[in-house]
Write a protein that binds this DNA or RNA. Structure first.
Lengths: 110, 110
DNA sequence: AAACTATATAACTAAAGAGTAAAATTGTAT
DNA sequence: ATACAATTTTACTCTTTAGTTATATAGTTT
C-alpha cells in the first residue's frame, strides 16, 4: 500500500464496500465459469429478480461485470478478474486466522 | 476463488465490509510504518476520539490489528499484513480502469 | 396490433452502521 | 484519596442501503 492519498483511499474503500455484500459475492461466484443471464442468477441464488438486477447493475456500473444483450436476455460476465484474487487473499487470511484459533483452543498433550 | 460455500462467502464479504470504510483504511494507512496510540491516530486522521477508538476496536476484534497497553496509552499495530496486499490489488485494478477510460476519451491523431 | 417474457426502475420499509457527546473505565500522578 | 489523562462504552441521530412490491421498459411472438 504505497502512498494512499485521501482521494484514492476513498476509491479503494468504495471498491471494498461493493465487494462487502454476501449477495454480490454470491453472484460473482456464480459467474466464475462463464456468463449468465439474470434469470439464471435468480435461480442459482434464490434471490428476488429486482434485487439481483440491482446488484448486477451496481457491479457492472463499476467495471467489475460486463453486460451483453441478446434478445430478451441480458448476459453478465466478469470483466475485472482481480476480484477473484482479492477473494483468494481474504480466504487465505481467514484460514490462517482459523488455524491460529484452533491452535489456541486445542489442548496439547501433557 | 475456489468453491466458496455459503458460510465462507459470508466471512469473506464481512472482511471486505470491514475494509470498505475510508476512515478505517486511513487508520491502516497511518499504521504502515509502525504502531501508534489512539491519540496519535486521532491527530493524524483529524477524526473524533470516540470514533477512532470504535474503528480500532472493530479492526482488532477481527484480527486485522493488534493491541498493546502501555500505561495510559493503548498502541495498535498491524497484525494481518495481507490488508496491504488487498489494497495494492485494488489500486492496480483501479489504475487499469482509469487507463482504460483515458484511452477512450483521448482522441487519436488521424 | 395485442399478449407475453426478461430486465430495469421507482417507491417504500427496515436494518445496519458512521459519527458524536457524554458517561464510565483504567491507569497515573500528586 | 483526589485529581487528572487516555481510552472505551453507551445512547443517540442521521445516512446509507438491502430487500421487496409494483410499475415501466425493451424485445419477442402470434
Amino acid at each position: 500500500m504505497g502512498k494512499l492519498n485521501e482521494n484514492t483511499l476513498e476509491h479503494v474503500a468504495h471498491r471494498f464496500k461493493i465487494l462487502g455484500e454476501p449477495m454480490r459475492l454470491k453472484l460473482l461466484n456464480c459467474l466464475q465459469k462463464g456468463e449468465l443471464c439474470v434469470q439464471d442468477l435468480v435461480e442459482q441464488t434464490g434471490a428476488g429478480q429486482a434485487n439481483v438486477s440491482k446488484h448486477l447493475s451496481l457491479l457492472s456500473s463499476h467495471g467489475i461485470l460486463g453486460r451483453r444483450k441478446k434478445g430478451l436476455h441480458v448476459y453478465y460476465f466478469i470483466k475485472d478478474k482481480s476480484v477473484y484474487d482479492l477473494c483468494d487473499l481474504v480466504c487465505n487470511s481467514l484460514e490462517k486466522d482459523a488455524a491460529g484459533l484452533q491452535q489456541v483452543f486445542t489442548p496439547r498433550q501433557s
